[in-house]
């Protein structure tokens, strides 16, 4: 398991890597420490998600990319 990411600090525009190998860009952050809203940039497991916006659960975020 990777180090937990403190998602409360993530600003909109930040790219995040997800546990299933997908990459997403944060759209907004409610700062509750549990969720961020993000748009999928790539999603090898399910390409239909690319371009779509979803709430991403903190435990699914493995890394902040930039």
């Amino acid at each position: 398991m990777s180090e937990p990411v403190n998602i409360r600090q993530i600003a909109p525009g930040t790219k995040i890597a997800l546990v299933d190998g997908a990459l997403a860009e944060v759209v907004s952050n409610p700062a509750d420490g549990v969720w961020v809203f993000a748009r999928y940039l790539s999603s090898p497991g399910d390409p239909s998600r690319v371009g779509g916006e979803e709430m991403i659960f903190a435990q699914d975020i493995v890394e902040i990319r930039e």
Binding site: V34, W35, Q59
Partner: peptide, 25 residues
């Protein structure tokens, strides 16, 4: 002020109009 109302226990999250919008896993 909150964009969503998130439950601290398992993380279910509700919009400010009460809908369940976030369910972990």
């Amino acid at each position: 002020n909150a964009a969503v109302l998130t439950c601290p226990y398992h993380g279910w999250s509700y919009s400010t109009d009460g809908r369940l919008v976030g369910v972990p896993y």
